[in-house]
Computed example of a mutant assay.
Amino acid sequence: MSRCTRSVQASPEQVWSVLADGWLYPVWVVGAARIRGVDRSWPAVGSQLQHSAGLWPLLLDDNTEVVEAEPPRRLVLRARGWPAGEAQVTIELVPEGGSTRVDIHEDAVRGPGTLVPRPLRSAAITLRNRETLRRLALLVEGRA
């Protein structure tokens, strides 16, 4: 499992407000190209957002579903990106003084992505999630 951490100069509630706006997903999630729809109940357990991944014109349509939600502390997602497969993504927000430590834990859980050797898979996920956290921090701090 890949784990990345970053400190964001904002409260957990401010970080959560970005996570809770499904329409912002492609702004901070590396690989998400656009949002096609967001359930009104997002980020309630069972709610989904429909996204496209890749680069135009080679886009794949799929969805991400909320598995667990504990505002403003924890969000667990099942991100689908077939034909690569599915990943479980856990985002934890930990208050640290006037800032928030954001931890992302991710791994492939279904499909061909699970066949990639764990060290190689973890390295690729870590690189992507470092940039994802950088984008999330810029978005949150710019709104704060």
Rank of each mutant, 00 (worst) to 15 (best):
M1D: 12
S2R: 04
R3H: 07
P12H: 08
P12N: 01
E13S: 05
S17W: 06
L19Q: 03
L19E: 08
A20C: 13
D21H: 04
G22L: 01
Y25Q: 13
P26I: 04
W28Q: 10
V29T: 12
A32F: 02
A33C: 07
R34L: 04
I35W: 05
I35M: 08
G37L: 02
V38P: 02
P43Y: 01
A44N: 09
G46F: 06
Q48M: 13
L49T: 07
H51K: 13
S52V: 12
G54M: 13
W56C: 03
W56M: 06
L59V: 09
V67Q: 03
E68C: 10
E68S: 05
E68T: 15
E70N: 15
R74F: 08
V76W: 11
R80P: 02
G81S: 07
P83H: 02
A84W: 13
E86V: 13
V89F: 13
L93D: 12
G98W: 11
G98F: 08
S99A: 15
V102F: 00
V102E: 00
D103T: 14
D103C: 11
E106S: 01
D107P: 01
V109C: 09
V116E: 06
R118Y: 05
L120I: 11
R121P: 07
L127D: 12
R128F: 13
R128D: 13
L133K: 11
R134S: 09
L136C: 01
L139Q: 13
G142Y: 00
